[in-house]
Design a protein around this nucleic acid. Sequence first.
DNA 1: CCAGACGTTGTT
DNA 2: GTCTGG
DNA 3: CCAGACGTTGTT
DNA 4: GTCTGG
Length: 222
Amino acid sequence: MCGRYTLTAPAEVLSEVFEIEEPVNWTPRYNIAPTQEAAVLGLNHQGGRSIGGMKWGLVPSWAKDPSIGNRMINARAETVAEKPAYRSSFKKRRCLLLADGFYEWKKAGSVKQPYYLSLQDHRPFAIAGIWSRWRREEQDDLLTCSLITTSPNSVAAEVHDRMPAILQAEDFNAWLDPANDDTQALLAMLGPYSGEDLQAFAVSTLVNSPKNDTPQLIERLA
DNA sequence: CCAGACGTTGTT
DNA sequence: GTCTGG
DNA sequence: CCAGACGTTGTT
DNA sequence: GTCTGG
């Protein structure tokens, strides 16, 4: 995990579910891949929630070349607080990646079958993430993010041995608060998803190509 | 001291 | 930036 | 995660 | 085979 996900809910639904005051700009996407734009929820300067776009693939502020971001797409919950490339973002720059499903590839011998995992009611959810700002001369800052992975719950374990860390709504504010320095409490939020409503089913290998982005990608295989 | 890495997944 | 390895 | 490229010189 | 790009 986790190299593809979806955010298909319209902007109005995102505003409502995540309690965003300002208008949200988001076009539904069925195949969000690393290096592409993620919808990221953070706190604005007034402390309210806001959603903005960030490139998926974290570029630490000290990077000489932003291509390092191609490899920094996932951070393990077990080590995110310690790894040199991630720890400063974990300490001061936590965020939520908004999604309503993710893909995992299950290996059967040499065959890789993609599965789509989502909540039974298709509600959007929030994946724990971290972000970074890479300053460029004569250009806007490059904002990037990584998502955090953890061990799978019983449903996800049927497909793969990792899953994204999905946060409970009551943890959103504590996760996003940059002043929160309770590492133990933060890490405790990153367990496998504990709800009973995660579902998984096989989907077409059309999802394999990042170029494909249609509703067909999330249709259950007959 | 300076140089070089800084990551995960999956596969063997 | 900060740590590890040479 | 998977797909796709993997190179230089010289010319326009 | 391995790295980069999406």
